[in-house]
């Protein structure tokens, strides 16, 4: 097992390597002048494009350029972000907690809603409830994240005046910056609790509700479909028939016997689900004015800030590869039938 984990973790750098090859390779499709634009930090430099091309060896071949880039990255220098006007690593440290807070607050509801609705659909197979949930899932799957986010902002925040957008009200941000507020995690809900500031905790939580809801609606549909089909699989198996034959209640059959086994395939969904969530977070942060990594990347895309985007890609690659590793390990722990050599 330990052997497997070690060998599997060694794949993460491999994944990042392939990913960086793909991105840097794609960049070779541009002319040196176009690529130089990514290094331009101010208007003055535009006149000196040739110098920039020389300085960063942009007219050289793929291998030379890749080596130059990789050497800097391995030293921990991801470059300077034009968008946030500071080194990329500094911005990531500042903004990562915000995105993590949003992702974590959406994660549990996503799993709960998906598993719960999937179970209902499976136990009411082909009934009205199943058909209705099927339509709901397809609608959820068809809703682009940005449309869902706009609807929530317009109807719930704009129309009803509930919850809020942004991370905290401006007055509170100023208050926190001047007062004695220790940032333990960078997540305002947790920090609020740790500092004993209930007002901060509630304000932060209130502003997480809408973006998290948008994520839940868009992402949980996929989990629901997987849960439904894996539950149906289990319900058709012999041990379930045996459990029914010995006179167990429907509830006991479903939740004590079939449920546990049906949950295993749902774990595999974690990877694709995380991917959809990250894509969603980029758009959602932009619409909800939530200063996380996604908003930063979206703005970088609009300003053609390639340095920022490359760093963002590598970070997402790292997150996705680690998540897939965790999924594989969780799989072995949950299902003892699976043995890894």
């Amino acid at each position: 097992m330990l052997n497997y984990i070690i060998r599997r973790s060694l794949q993460i750098p491999m994944v990042l390597f392939v990913l960086s090859l793909i991105i840097v390779g794609l960049m070779q499709l541009l002319t040196p002048q176009q690529r130089a634009a990514a290094f331009v930090k101010s208007d003055k430099q535009i006149e000196h494009l040739d110098q920039i091309i020389k300085k960063y060896h942009l007219d050289e071949g793929f291998l030379v350029q890749y080596e130059l880039w990789a050497r800097e990255v391995l030293r921990g220098n991801l470059g300077f972000s034009r968008i946030s006007k500071e080194p990329v690593t500094t911005t990531i440290r500042k903004r990562l907690p915000a995105s993590m807070e949003l992702a974590l607050s959406a994660f549990i509801p996503i799993v709960l809603v998906g598993v719960w609705l999937g179970t209902i659909a499976a136990t009411h197979r082909d009934g009205i409830l199943d058909q209705a949930l099927r339509v709901v899932a397809i609608i959820g799957w068809s809703l682009p994240t940005f449309v869902m986010a706009i609807w929530l902002v317009a109807w719930v925040y704009g129309g009803l005046g509930w919850f809020g957008i942004g991370r905290l009200p401006n007055s509170m941000l100023i208050d926190l910056a001047t007062g004695h507020f220790h940032r333990y995690t960078g997540m305002y809900t947790l920090d609020g609790l740790l500092n004993g500031r209930w007002d901060v905790f509630f304000q932060a939580l209130k502003r997480l509700v809408l973006p998290a809801t948008a994520l839940v609606i868009v992402v949980s549909a996929g989990i629901m479909r997987v849960m439904r089909s894996s539950m149906l699989d289990e319900l058709g198996k012999d041990y379930v028939r045996t459990a029914r034959a010995k006179g167990l209640m429907q509830k006991a059959v479903i939740y004590k016997h079939a449920w546990r086994n049906a949950l295993i395939p749902v774990i595999t969904m974690a990877g694709p689900m995380l991917g959809r969530m990250i894509g969603g977070i980029v758009v959602i942060e932009l619409i909800f004015n939530f200063p996380g990594l996604g908003e930063w990347a979206a703005k970088a895309a609009l300003q053609l800030d390639m340095t920022t985007l490359l760093a963002f890609v590598m970070l997402i690659g790292l997150i996705m590869a680690s998540a897939n590793l965790l999924v594989d390990i969780a799989y072995v722990i949950v299902d003892p039938r699976i043995r890894y050599e």
Binding site: G271, A297, V313, M320
Partner: peptide, 12 residues
Amino acid sequence: AFPRLVFVMIVS
């Protein structure tokens, strides 16, 4: 494994 929207965003 990479989120599609992010990938397309970068390539475009």
